[in-house]
């Protein structure tokens, strides 16, 4: 026993170093579980508050760009107003079956909550944004985040007043997308090369794809409302050996100056997830 103590005393520095190193690696590789459980709320509040102080100054310098984005968004939404369109003369009216109440009533599937971006980064391989809205303001993990001009990311952790978004410019982020014209589905990832471009994959070559095509979020995505702009095709990377396109997309969102975002809540997320998981469980049995 004495020798054990002597050994520990002799190599205390090295053992202490090993312990710290192991603690940090455990934190790194078990990011979500450990992070959620231990420090997310306290540390999130603290760093969020400092981010917010910094953003108070930074925001002033980006007002112009923010304003332009909002005007463009308003313009796009105004174009969609019912009053702008003239309906053709209709002789055949549609009648709804009044016995089935629910067929007329529409259920809102996605709710929008506005949030201020207080912290953001584009320079690393795993970029995150901080929002000034947290669990006290109805934010919880696994909500989608869209900006005035396109999608931004997903919520991965929350504290009381702040939340952290994994941005589209993160090597772990994927989103299911579709072509605007023909509806073929694929996925979008980031390859870490440039914050202006993301990669589009898994679209079959049977579909027409041209430079400048819009890529939207798909109906199968559980996080984002369908039809939100993800990006436009900047260049198609030639690969004759594959039956699928690989293309570089220009992101719709400008991650350098984003200041306001909308957090989208899928009201049927839990239900859908539970159903899909139960199928997986049944297959495994």
């Amino acid at each position: 026993m004495r020798n054990v103590f002597l050994f520990i005393r002799r190599y205390f520095n090295f053992l202490f170093f090993l312990t710290l190193e192991i603690i940090s690696l455990i934190m790194l590789f078990r990011y979500n579980k450990f992070h959620e459980a231990a420090f997310a709320s306290v540390a999130g509040e603290f760093t969020g508050r400092i981010d917010q102080k910094y953003n108070n100054i930074e925001y002033y310098f980006k007002l112009k760009g923010t304003n332009e984005d909002l005007v463009k968004e308003n313009l796009r939404l105004r174009q969609l107003l019912k009053e702008n369109y003239e309906s053709p003369v209709q002789r055949n009216h549609l009648f709804y079956d009044t016995i089935l109440d629910d067929s007329v009533k529409k259920i809102q599937r996605f709710l929008y909550l506005e949030a201020k971006v207080v912290g953001s980064a584009v320079s690393t391989q795993t970029n995150y944004l901080t929002l000034h809205r947290g669990s006290n303001q109805q934010i919880h993990p696994n909500m989608g985040v869209v900006g005035p001009s396109g999608i931004v990311g997903r919520i991965i952790s929350v504290s009381q007043n702040f939340s952290v978004v994994m941005s589209m410019l993160n090597r772990h982020f994927t989103v299911i997308v579709k072509l605007k014209n023909t509806g073929e589905r694929g996925k979008v990832e980031w390859d870490g090369v440039s914050p202006d471009y993301v990669l589009l994959k898994d679209i079959p070559k049977s579909a027409p794809l041209n430079k400048g095509d819009s890529i939207l979020t798909s109906e199968t995505s559980t996080l984002f409302p369908p039809g939100v702009l993800v990006g436009t095709v900047h260049e198609i990377i030639e690969d004759p050996s594959s039956g699928f396109y690989t293309a570089r997309l220009k992101t719709a969102t400008n991650f350098y100056n984003i200041q306001y975002v909308y957090v989208t809540e899928n009201t049927q997320y839990d239900e859908q997830k539970a159903l899909e998981d139960s199928v997986k469980k049944k297959l495994n049995e």
Partner: peptide, 17 residues
């Protein structure tokens, strides 16, 4: 620094080394 950059453990490991 890790808590500011949302990478718990990454910079801590390098700094300890």
């Amino acid at each position: 620094l890790d808590y500011f950059m949302n990478t718990p453990g990454l910079h801590a490991a390098a700094c300890t080394l």
